[in-house]
């Protein structure tokens, strides 16, 4: 640390901390919404209806094929106009904040990925699960809530962890729409102190540490969800090895 006084450093640290909180808030809000919508969409797309399938294909293809940054810009710049078109005069007066644009964009994009995971997991469930629940005359709501979804989550967990860490790494994009997040704070501090190297490396390490922490939690969660499944899993992997 060459020309940084302690007081300056403390000031920048505070700004970085505030930025980090905003990043975290953005990330958790977006992930929670993407998760809820993703699961709902995933279940909805099990419908055989051609219309539903068609809409799903188009939606998934578009948002999996376009950079998130463009979706953020589109919601940020075009959001009020879109709201205006839907809600009329009232909607047009709502200004979309960078934070709001980020949440909307990430929700729309990542709900597609999560829906895809959920679809895949449901398809991979043994058919007997549905039949068994039906044979026992379990009401559909309970069947989904208590029987199907917990297993779906277990199957989808590795993919969800992937999406989680990928989304985390995309959150800095919202700073390009003007959000004062961790990366924006780091950029300001880097410019003001002429110490970009330190600040950017430190910021990168914050992201890496957060991901490492969440990976650890995820693997703990995985072992918990896997309880009682180990024999089945072992059987499956050995049969794959033999094939």
């Amino acid at each position: 640390m060459t020309n940084l006084s302690l007081a300056d450093l403390a000031g920048y640290m505070r700004q970085l901390g505030e930025g980090a909180l905003i990043t975290l808030e953005l990330f958790l809000t977006s992930f929670a919404l993407a998760f809820i919508f993703g699961v709902l969409i995933g279940i909805a797309t099990l419908s055989r209806s051609r219309v539903v399938q068609g809409i799903w294909r188009v939606y998934a293809s578009i948002f999996m094929g376009v950079p998130s940054l463009l979706v953020i810009f589109l919601t940020f710049y075009g959001g009020s106009a879109m709201l205006g078109a839907v809600l009329g005069e009232f909607g047009a007066r709502i200004d979309i904040s960078p934070f709001g644009a980020g949440v909307i964009a990430f929700t729309v994009v990542y709900a597609a990925y999560i829906a895809e995971l959920v679809r895949g997991a449901i398809e991979n469930l043994p058919k007997g699960q549905f039949e068994g629940a039906r044979a026992l005359a379990i009401p559909p709501a309970i069947m989904w809530g208590k029987v199907i979804l917990p297993q779906v989550m277990r199957l989808a967990l590795p993919g969800l962890v992937n999406v989680w860490s990928f989304m985390l790494k995309e959150t800095p994009l919202v700073s390009l729409a003007g959000l004062q997040d961790l990366v924006a704070a780091a950029k300001i501090a880097a410019g003001a102190t002429k110490e970009p190297f330190i600040f950017f490396v430190a910021t990168a390490l914050v992201f890496i540490a957060f991901s490492a922490l969440s990976f650890r939690l995820a693997s703990r969660l995985e072992t918990r969800l896997d309880r009682g499944q180990r024999r089945e899993a072992a059987g499956r992997s050995s049969s794959r090895a033999a094939a």
């Binding site: 994009l173 990366v183 780091a186 950029k187 190297f197 992201f207």
Partner: peptide, 15 residues
């Protein structure tokens, strides 16, 4: 693990 944007800043401003 580092977001691409930060890597880009790091190389562009930091190096």
């Amino acid at each position: 693990g580092a977001p691409l944007l930060i890597l880009l800043y790091l190389v562009y401003y930091g190096l």
